[in-house]
Design a protein around this nucleic acid. Sequence first.
DNA 1: GAGAGCATGTAAGAGGTTACATGATTCC
DNA 2: GGAATCATGTAACCTCTTACATGCTCTC
Lengths: 188, 188
Amino acid sequence: MSLSHAILGFLSKQPQTGYTLKNEHFDKSVAYFWPADQTQIYKTLDKLVEQGFATSKIEYQSDRPNRKVYSITKQGKVELERWLGEAIEPPMYRDPLLVQLFFSEFSDSETMINVLKSSRAKHEAVLQALKAVDLPVAAKCTDYEDLAARLTLELGLKSKQAYIEWFDEAITAISAFDKKRKRAAKAR
Amino acid sequence: MSLSHAILGFLSKQPQTGYTLKNEHFDKSVAYFWPADQTQIYKTLDKLVEQGFATSKIEYQSDRPNRKVYSITKQGKVELERWLGEAIEPPMYRDPLLVQLFFSEFSDSETMINVLKSSRAKHEAVLQALKAVDLPVAAKCTDYEDLAARLTLELGLKSKQAYIEWFDEAITAISAFDKKRKRAAKAR
DNA sequence: GAGAGCATGTAAGAGGTTACATGATTCC
DNA sequence: GGAATCATGTAACCTCTTACATGCTCTC
């Protein structure tokens, strides 16, 4: 399970709480390829402690709620390293849009084109957000950490660009098919 | 939920059983963008009947197990059409590989490169499988059904190609970084 | 006085996977 | 004799999401 290992990764950088994991880490650096829910982060932290991969200490605070600070254990480090070398099966990507397209014969091409356009806009917005991320290009990275982050970003950019090219081709192809069909209907 | 609607789509083409849905449809046409588990197909069929979107009739067979043939209802057709026009949020893609890459500073670059190479090979295999699918190019489709199927395939091809280009760039970038680092260490 | 920030949690549910059970027939 | 095909299901589990609860402090 990747969430456990992502948490172990962040705890390797420094001991911290579920709250900071969520707000300072998951919602920032890895959000675009591994978003994590607050509830699940807390549950997973519990599990990591059970498994002996992390320990927690309560830090009492007077003016704010107490914090539970988690640290990675030796066992946790071993487990993280093991997992980092594991060849994991690429996950299946399920996109409802493709299901809609596949069965769009039961709707009509105009509706389908609108659905495609609206989806294209959403992907475009994500692409723009990714483009706005401020990280040096791979060749200019001096830290390995930056290089790794840059490369994850790069895949996001490439995938989104591929998607957007595809949207344009798909919309054009469906429009063209539609015109052809209308011309044929007129000729009869 | 897309599985329900994919089933409604297949039932629109013709009434059939859970068994044929799995073996003749899900495992073939839509397998690469919406694989479905047998157990879940049966569960979802029950749910569709409950919701009034499908009905079932038992067909008694003497030499083989009885079959439960499902048909879409009017309500089901209305629901499918409604869903086909819905603008659905693009799903989040979570790839453990990117988590591994992001935290690869806690392993070593050689290990990471091996993980990348092994993943690349798996993606390459899928790409080859997609290339082997026999469907006319979009411009030559005479049926709308073929066009829709072709376009879903096209996205798969494009995405995989983008992935593979990225793999090559990522592997090159990490190797280059590594050489630079080793040269710097030597110079000291 | 309202809302944001800090901080941790419970309960319930949706969607998907894995393992297992049954039992006849047909093909090698 | 063993495997594949036909055909439907149950039980248990994992991951993730949504809604809700608590309560103090600081800022507008």
